[in-house]
Design a protein around this nucleic acid. Structure first.
Lengths: 154, 154
DNA sequence: GAGCGTATGTCAGGCTGCTGACATGCAGCC
DNA sequence: GGCTGCATGTCAGCAGCCTGACATACGCTC
């Protein structure tokens, strides 16, 4: 069946937005006691798993523009949670590193977000379901992103 | 296994955000030729399936605040795509209806978005997978939303 | 070496959406 | 009837994020 119209009740896209909005709200409330916003947390988490990322790479990983990430990095740097070299060792990219305090804050924030995610995934029956959901979401993202590329370039 | 930390590569929440961001971008490019933003389209689609919704109900359905929806409604009303009575027939809620032009614009927009969603779902193997993804997303949204309620109220 | 394309960092301006606040209308309970 | 609680519509103010622009640095080609 190839529906040529969207129906709100059965639309996967609508359910996707619904789940993303709910997760965003829950993360906001979980991170507020730590004084972190979701973009700030995303930045820390990316740096935790991939130290030395540049601002542009962080921006792509957090789904924001370079300019927005620039503001996030400035704030986190002033709070002493991360450090950047004053000059670029190669090209223009400034490799960013978490400070000791940044690692500590990330550790606490990551645990808080993990609890939220666990509660969300409690709605699923088995770990197989979780793995399949993850795989399907990544596949959907790639499919629709490539389609967007075609539309943008064409 | 109960991970107490988030790992970007395996996080369902990250994949969810990724898919939602990609879908949002693709919808933006698909709707731009029609002169519609995503919130405007969402408003039309909700009215199409449920005529007579109030601004507050539309806001909840589109995952924005009443204030944002108010601005969307004002714009669409000036373009003649929807109509609201000058006075509330009951309480304060103003039941909103699509105009003939609004129905026509929605029809075209809905087809464009359906094409995007079809391309996204092309990444999945069967219609069973689509149905399961839809069901799992709705379940996740409910689970994390109720958790957020508890956190907010407590 | 010169030129072009691309990627990055950064600044300025504007637009969107949110928080906070207030007035209005309905339902409940005393 | 009067009061409280709640939902809705609307206004003002503010933060966040984006678009546009520019300078710089690398890789490639000629």
């Amino acid at each position: 069946m190839q529906p040529d119209r969207v129906h709100v009740e059965s639309s996967v896209g609508y359910a996707l937005k619904q789940a993303a909005a709910a997760l965003r709200g829950a993360m906001d409330t979980a991170l507020r006691p730590l004084g972190l916003t979701v973009p700030q947390y995303a930045c820390l988490e990316l740096l935790g798993s991939s130290p030395g990322l540049s601002a542009a790479e962080l921006a792509r990983g957090a789904f924001v523009t370079r300019q927005s990430m620039h503001a996030v990095l400035t704030g986190l740097e002033q709070r002493g949670l991360l450090a950047r070299p004053p000059a670029a060792p190669r090209g223009r990219a400034l490799p960013t590193q978490l400070t000791e305090r940044g690692v500590a804050v990330l550790d606490e924030a990551s645990r808080a977000v993990a609890r939220v995610e666990q509660r969300m995934l409690g709605a699923l029956a088995s770990t197989d379901d979780v793995a399949r959901l993850h795989r399907d979401l990544v596949a959907c993202a790639e499919a629709v992103a490539s389609a967007d590329d075609v539309a943008t370039r064409g």
